[in-house]
Every structure is written in structure tokens, then in C-alpha cells.
Write a protein that binds this DNA or RNA. Structure first.
Length: 838
RNA sequence: GCGGGUGUGGCGGAAUGGUAGACGCCGGGGACUUAAAAUCCCCUGUCCUUUGGACGUGUGGGUUCGAGUCCCACCACCCGCACCA
């Protein structure tokens, strides 16, 4: 065998990638009798190039998929493209290319990049959300949701860029100006499509409890996002004869209410007919919403002159318009209790309103003044008539009971979660399959007219949505009455596309979105892997769609992702120096890195080595997967992605690190070259290490502890290198090939073939563990005196407590430490340690 | 402000309450070589009076025969949400 030649990834990688493709090694068979395993990584947006973060994500999924296959599972490990979105339209505007052409070219390029990394993907199920054979089914599902009452239209405010004539997402509004045009952004009211995710708020919240294999962090983020709160909604009678409903989570503090406040958008505020009021409302709307602005924003109010009658005391409370009250939460109006809410406290302080205490640590503290801030905590109710002496929870129940008795309001649950606005005034998205008819109104497109495809002949040089001014596409006959009608020109939010793609991977019938039986075979996804940035929106929307489809009886499964793993980012140090007062960043390939300094290759000047941070174009600390695969081969890159850092933490990229990985690839290759199948003789110690490694690597992969699996493999490698030739050693080498196969599949196939083994290592079953070899027959016992290590001794496994104690006391080092003191107690942990207490 | 996470050598990190620093990187020394690359071997937490010993897992307490691990308080950094009544 070729022990004298170096492993050559440049030829081996492609050769094995072709072999897998020809043998259809990773094609998922739905009819297989094996247990099914669906491994999925979040599909990428085809931006143009694979990012190193993708490589880490897909390598993790790949190791798991290959391991699952080796352990007897039928594995579904697909890949697709989240292909609609704004960057394609931006490219169209900047480069004059068609978004479709741009996107499809990107997909081709990125697919080739992924193939170079040797991922065990079932490419026969590849899909792209921008193709009619995907989005046409999405249109059908959208109509189903409409018919199930989960879709509605509502007038709603958007950010409008008057120059680009387009709607902007909140992130595209910078300091009140459009990110691209720089024009002052206007608020516009448009009729928009919404999905009733709030119908599922309770279910989505409760469902989190069943997701034991999701990170606690993600579950908490979703819980907060859904934001359930229980309280009381009740109405004040106003001095102008109207009734004003307010919402509170602290009905127990109702006797502490000293004023009432409404949002600037509230009808009560809008109804005040004075220039001052209008000016104040306009001022409120100008306020920014960034964290810093909110932190420092002063509480401002405007006294409407209206009075609200307290439902129990009958007192007249002033009604203010306040800048800190939000129109879209609760009723847009509050009862303000300054003593027990910090915002109300600040407001009351500023406007000289009373700050009564109605909750105190004890009854004796009823008169204690406040110490500069509100007390929102628990306690006993005081100064509150019939509530006095009650605890907070009892008082809440009592007030709700009395208010309900009066018919003035009721206990109510309020959600922070809003319905999901899915309308986008864009071209490059799924056309919303509805038609506006002059006489019939909004009419769903007939299912047999789907897919409603995007017109190709569009122009991006004129600002605005090209669909809106596309005369032939836009005008259609009404499906109901046959009269003149127009297509909906909005397209769907791209989060809709990614809310059901995992169902389409399971089966891809031409005539329907998915086959329910196939979905039942594969779903839920056994392991979903992706970035933490999708913790809320994508994962919540996907959960919502799955539940909505289950609700409509289309599928059985209620939660799409049984286990979720959120991987860390790939980071890199930065290189920069001051040039003419400006910090200029340099890319890693412009730098020659020495042990403790970095030099710019171009002029040999020293540059500053900056913090290890997320790779970004502006800091130029990016590495290109293609370049490193060219230099080191796919296996070294994959190995690096798995080594060192725990997968949920950030992984610092380093040149030294990848070189170390590359060295290990060649080191293994040399070891595999030393395979001598004819060698005889047993090496029991090595057998033990081999079997312990098999068990440990399996356990680590199943727990996604790839860094630990890697360390185990290093250890076994070292042991095999040191061992003399024997049958045990040959077996260890074969095992090692299989253990590294999920991580370094190309090297493993090459070695497997060179060793004359049958078939592909990718098809070989995971090596069996002999449980008898997992236990040592000799163990090292730690001997402590007063809790500190004094000596270690070797004892047979399972030695009795008495024997261990005797052996420990016989040790010179231990006796020296005891130094004649009386032994009061000896603690013996069998097979582990002896602790002597004096 | 609310919620969550993290803190261990020069670095990335191991460690069911039981020998802290596995494994890798960096660094040092050596072998091979005319030389280099590649490879191999050894050393590599700090300190001391070095056949030994003391200290050591952000800080301060506590529980325990024994604490990186459990409990309490605090500090630092990171992430998410945020005038959500």
C-alpha cells in the first residue's frame, strides 16, 4: 500500500464525491424498513458564495447524518435554497440583471462549493423556493389557510420610501431615512395580508414545554416573544360621557391609581380639538425607538382636561396623553399607579401628581414614603379600603371579581405576540394568489390556476414594485363573475417560504404540497441545526405553520423539530492599522502571521492584531471556504470545524489551527499505510482503548460533542502509533478509519479501499463494541490525606475497601503526611480513591 | 429595566461531588538532514529552600471527609427582549 505517498485531497476528494454520487449512497429511501432519521440544517440564502459559517453548520449535520446511517438508520439529509429575497432585487437594480438569473447562478455556484466539501446530501430532493414548483404549492397552502379563516386583510402602517417607491423593513430605516435613497421615510397605510398566528399563541406557548431537546435559551426567547400576561380590562367613566377601557396586570393596586394615560394614537387623544394637543401628539410620534433613545426618553404628558371616575373611590382622575403608552398593547390606555410602576412614578413626579402607597412590606409600613423609585414587588395591600391586609394575588382576584360583578370589565389574558403581516410590496417573492374584483371583492385564485408565476419581463430601473405596473400580468378576469379584475401585486414574506420547506423535503409530489403519508414517515425532523439568529422568527413561524396544517387536518405532526441545536459563529482576529487618522482593516491573506505579531505582506509593516470577532466584510476578517479547501482539502477543513470549540460556542479561525488539522490528516494517512492485515497476536491494552474509543466517540457524536469525539480520536491515534504490530493493531486501524469516516469521509474512503475492504466505508456499519473490553482490570487509586492528593497506587479493579485502605496506609508518602497523627476516619470510594482523615 | 449565558495555563478547551488542566494550538529543547521542508522524541500552570512542597478553576463566604462542579452574595463580559401597563 501507498505508505510512502502523501494523501492528496486534490484528487481523492473529487474521486470519492463522484463515487458516492454514482452509487447514490445518500439517497433517502422512504420505503426502507429501517428506522428513519431526518437530519436538517437551516437552508441557505443563495447570496453568491458559501460562508464559513455554513461550512461549520453543514459539517455538524453531516457528521450526524453519516453516523446515523452507520448505526442502521435510513437517513434523510436534504439541501435546498431559501431563494427569494431582497438581495436579488438589489442586484437587479445595481447590475441590471434579472433576480431569477442572478439567484439561479448563485445556486449553481454554491452547490458546487457544497459538493467540494463532500456532504452526504440527498441532492435528488433539492428545492429552491423561487421556483414555481415550490411556490405554487405555497400559494395553494395560503389559500387553504384563508379558507380555514387564518388569513385576513387589514389596513396597516408601513415605512414608505418616497424615492424608491417601496416599503421598507424597520431595519432598513436608519435615523428616519431610507437606507438606500436617504429620503425621509413616510408612514403610509396600506391594506395588507396577515396570518392569524395569535390564534395559536396559547398552543405555541404550551408546545414549548414539550420541546425538551431545544435549548432553554430559545424556548425562553420564544416565551418572551409570545408574552402572555394575565390581568384585568375595565372601563372608566369619563367626564365627557364616554367610557375608556384600560388594561392592567396589577388590579390589586387599583386604589393607588392617581391618573389615567392614553397613547398618542388613542381615539381619546385624537379627539381633543386643540392645536396644543395636536402638536403634542406629533411630537410623540417623532420619538425614536432605539434602545438608547428609550432609555433616556423623558416621560411626557398632555393634560386633556377630561376626568375619569375611579370605580371604587369615585375620585376624579386626570386623563393625560402620555408618550410612554403604546397603542398596540392592551387597550392603548392605562390606569397609572405611580407608587408601584416606575414609568408612572417618573411621570407623576414630573407633573406633581399624587403617589399613594398601596403595597407595603407589612401593615405597619403603610405610611412609609417611597425612596425615589416605585416599588413593583410583592407585599401586603394597604390604604385600599376592602383590600387592606390581603396579599397581592388575593387582592387581584378580589378586584377582578368585583369589577366583573359591576359589569365594568373582566379578567383578561393579553399577548405580546402580534399577527404576522406577510405582505411585501416586492417583485422577488411568492405572488399572493388573490384577485381583486370590482364587484366580487377579494377572490382566491382557483387552485387549478396555480402556480401564479412571476412575469419574467420586468424592469428594475424604474423605482417601485414592477408587478404593480405590469399591465398584462396584473389584469385578469375575475374567476367568480368573469368581470374586470386585478391580481394582488404583493408577494409573501420570505419567512413564509421557510415555514414549510422541511415538509416538502419529505416528499415532492407534483400535484400537491406534500404527501401526508410521507410526512408521517419522516417528520418530525430528528435534529435541526442552525444559527441562534433564527431563535424567534423562523422557528416560531415554522412551528405555527406546522400547527396550522395539523389544525386543518393536512398533517399529524404538531412540532416540526424534535431537537434543535444552535451552533456558534466562526470568528477571526482582525488586522488593522491607522493610516492617516483612519483605521484600515486588512484581510488574513494580506498578512503574514508570526507568533506574537502580524505583518502586512505588501510592505512588511506591522499591523495591530484585534479582538477575535464574528467574520464580517467591513472588518475584512473573512476566510473563503474555496480557498482553504484548495489549500488543505475538504477533510482538514471539516476536521477544523469540529475540533477544539464546543459546537454551541464561537470557533476562532486560525491559520495555525487549520495547519494542525492538515498535519493530522497526513498523520492518519501514514498510520493507515502501516496497516498489516496479516500481523498476528493480541494486544489486550490496545483492544481496550479501541473499544473505549468506539463507545466514547458514538456517545459524543450523539450528544453533538464533536470536539470531544475529536479528542478521543487523537488519543486512539496516539495509542495505535505506539503499539507494535499485532492483529489487535490491525483491527484498531480499521476501527480508526471508521471512527473518522463521518468527519473525514474522503480520507476514510481512500484508506478503506487501500486496505482492501469491501464497498464504501460510508455504507459500513458502525463498529460493534465489546462491553467486556470497556472495563479495565487495573485501576489507579488516588490517596488523599485531609482532602489533598498524597500518592496514587495501582489496584485490581473491584478491590475491597479493606484492601484499598490497607494499601493506602502502607504508602510511605501517606505515612509521612500523616506524621503520626491519629487516623480518625478513612473514606474509600471503590476503584477511585481513599481519603484519610486525621 | 427584565430574561438568559459565560468566566479553568500564553490560546481553544477537558473533567457522573472524587488524581484540575484530557486533546489540540503556540512555545522551548533534541534527533534525522550538507541544509531546509516533512517527520519523530522530550519539556511546557505559578512559586519555593526542588528525591520534596506550597499555591492554583473571576471575587468573598458556606455545605462536605473531599468543591471547577452544590448553595449564598458580589464582579466582569456576552446575548436576547424592551416605556408591553
Amino acid at each position: 500500500m501507498s505508505s510512502d505517498t502523501r494523501f492528496d485531497p486534490a484528487s481523492a476528494d473529487a474521486r470519492w464525491q463522484t463515487a458516492w454520487e454514482e452509487a447514490q449512497t445518500f439517497r433517502a429511501d422512504s420505503d426502507s424498513p429501517k428506522p428513519k432519521s431526518y437530519v436538517l440544517e437551516m437552508f441557505p440564502y443563495p447570496s453568491g458564495r458559501i460562508h464559513i459559517g455554513h461550512v461549520r453548520n453543514y459539517t455538524m449535520g453531516d457528521v450526524l447524518a453519516r453516523y446515523k446511517k452507520a448505526t442502521g438508520h435510513e437517513v434523510l439529509h436534504p439541501m435546498g435554497w431559501d431563494a427569494f429575497g431582497m438581495p436579488a432585487e438589489n442586484a437587479a437594480m445595481e447590475k441590471g440583471v434579472h433576480p431569477g438569473g442572478w439567484t439561479r447562478a448563485n445556486i449553481e455556484h454554491m452547490k458546487a462549493q457544497l459538493k467540494r466539501l463532500g456532504f452526504a446530501l440527498d441532492w435528488s430532493r433539492e428545492l429552491a423556493t423561487c421556483e414555481p414548483d415550490y411556490y405554487g404549492h405555497e400559494q395553494a397552502l395560503f389559500i387553504d389557510l384563508y379558507e380555514a379563516g387564518l388569513v385576513y386583510r387589514k389596513e396597516s402602517e408601513v415605512n414608505w420610501d418616497p424615492v424608491d417607491m417601496t416599503v421598507l423593513a424597520n431595519e432598513q430605516v436608519i435615523d428616519g431615512k431610507g437606507w438606500r435613497s436617504g429620503a425621509e421615510v413616510e408612514k403610509r397605510k396600506l391594506n395588507q395580508w396577515f396570518l392569524k398566528i395569535t390564534d395559536f399563541a396559547e398552543e405555541l406557548l404550551e408546545g414549548l414545554g414539550s420541546l425538551e431537546n431545544w435549548p432553554e435559551k430559545v424556548r425562553l426567547m420564544q416565551e418572551n416573544w409570545i408574552g402572555k400576561s394575565k390581568g384585568l380590562e375595565f372601563s372608566f367613566d369619563l367626564s365627557n360621557g364616554a367610557r375608556l377601557p384600560v388594561y392592567t396586570t396589577r388590579p390589586d393596586t387599583i386604589f393607588g391609581a392617581s391618573f389615567v394615560a392614553v397613547a398618542a394614537d388613542h381615539p381619546v387623544a385624537q379627539g381633543i380639538d386643540s392645536d396644543e394637543a395636536r402638536a403634542f401628539i406629533a411630537e410623540c410620534k417623532k420619538g425614536g425607538t432605539t434602545a438608547a433613545e428609550l432609555e433616556t426618553a423623558e416621560k411626557l404628558g398632555f393634560d386633556t382636561g377630561i376626568a375619569a371616575k375611579h370605580p371604587f373611590t369615585g375620585a376624579d382622575l386626570p386623563v393625560y396623553i402620555a408618550n410612554f403608552v403604546l397603542m398596540d398593547y392592551g387597550t392603548g390606555a392605562i390606569m397609572a399607579v405611580p407608587g408601584h410602576d416606575q414609568r408612572d412614578f417618573e411621570f407623576a413626579t414630573k407633573y406633581g401628581l399624587p403617589i399613594p402607597r398601596v403595597v407595603a412590606p407589612s401593615v405597619e409600613d403603610a405610611g412609609t414614603p417611597f425612596d425615589g423609585e416605585a416599588e413593583a414587588g410583592d407585599g401586603v395591600i394597604v390604604n385600599s379600603d376592602f383590600l387592606d391586609g390581603m396579599d397581592v394575588e388575593t387582592a387581584k382576584r378580589e378586584i377582578i371579581r368585583r369589577i366583573e360583578e359591576q359589569g365594568r370589565g373582566e379578567g383578561k389574558t393579553v399577548w405580546r405576540l402580534r399577527d404576522w403581516g406577510v405582505s411585501r410590496q416586492r417583485y422577488w417573492g411568492t405572488p399572493i394568489p388573490f384577485i381583486h374584483c370590482e364587484s366580487c371583492g377579494v377572490v382566491a385564485a382557483p387552485k387549478d390556476s396555480l402556480p401564479i408565476t412571476l412575469p419574467e419581463d420586468v424592469d428594475f430601473q424604474t423605482p417601485g414594485n414592477p408587478l404593480l405596473r405590469h399591465e398584462t400580468w396584473k389584469h385578469v378576469d375575475c374567476p367568480k363573475c368573469g368581470g374586470k379584475a386585478e391580481r394582488e401585486t404583493d408577494t409573501l414574506d420570505t419567512f413564509v417560504d421557510s415555514s414549510w420547506y422541511f415538509l416538502r423535503f419529505a416528499s415532492q409530489p407534483a400535484d400537491k404540497p406534500f404527501d401526508a403519508e410521507e410526512v408521517a414517515k419522516w417528520l418530525p425532523v430528528e435534529q435541526y441545526i442552525g444559527g441562534i439568529e433564527h431563535a424567534i422568527l423562523h422557528l416560531l413561524y415554522a412551528r405555527f405553520w406546522t400547527r396550522a396544517l395539523a389544525h386543518m387536518g393536512q398533517i399529524e405532526v404538531k412540532e416540526p423539530f424534535a431537537s434543535l441545536f444552535t451552533q456558534g459563529m466562526v470568528t477571526h482576529e482582525t488586522y488593522s492599522r491607522k493610516e492617516g487618522g483612519k483605521t484600515v482593516y486588512y484581510a488574513p491573506d494580506e498578512i503574514s502571521r508570526e507568533a506574537d505579531r502580524a505583518l502586512l505582506s505588501a510592505d512588511g509593516g506591522e499591523v495591530e492584531i484585534g479582538r477575535v470577532i464574528k467574520m464580517s466584510k467591513s472588518k475584512k476578517n473573512v476566510v473563503d471556504p474555496d480557498t482553504i479547501v484548495d489549500s488543505y482539502g475538504a477533510d482538514a477543513v471539516r476536521w477544523f470545524m469540529l475540533s477544539d470549540s464546543p459546537p454551541e460556542r464561537d470557533l476562532p479561525w486560525s491559520e495555525a489551527g487549520i495547519e494542525g488539522c492538515s498535519r493530522f490528516v497526513h498523520r492518519l494517512w501514514r498510520l493507515f499505510g502501516a496497516y498489516e492485515p496479516q500481523a498476528g497476536g493480541k494486544d489486550k491494552a490496545l483492544d481496550r482503548k479501541t473499544h473505549q474509543a468506539i463507545a466514547a466517540v458514538a456517545e459524543d457524536i450523539e450528544a453533538l460533542g464533536f470536539n470531544k469525539a475529536v479528542a478521543r480520536i487523537y488519543e486512539l491515534t496516539g495509542a495505535v502509533e505506539k503499539a507494535a504490530p499485532s492483529a489487535s493493531r490491525s483491527a484498531a486501524i480499521r476501527t480508526l478509519v471508521q471512527l473518522v469516516a463521518p468527519m473525514m469521509p474522503h480520507l476514510a474512503e481512500e484508506a478503506w479501499a487501500d486496505m482492501g475492504m469491501e464497498g464504501l466505508v460510508a455504507d459500513a456499519p458502525w463498529p460493534a463494541v465489546d462491553p467486556a473490553l470497556l472495563v479495565e482490570d487495573e485501576v489507579t487509586i488516588a490517596v488523599q490525606h485531609k482532602g489533598k492528593l498524597r500518592d496514587t497506587l495501582t489496584a485490581p479493579k473491584g478491590a475491597s475497601k479493606e484492601d484499598l485502605e490497607a494499601m493506602a496506609l502502607a504508602s510511605d508518602k501517606v505515612q509521612r503526611s500523616i506524621d503520626g497523627a491519629e487516623v480518625r476516619k478513612v473514606i474509600v470510594v471503590p476503584d477511585r480513591l481513599v481519603n484519610i482523615v486525621t
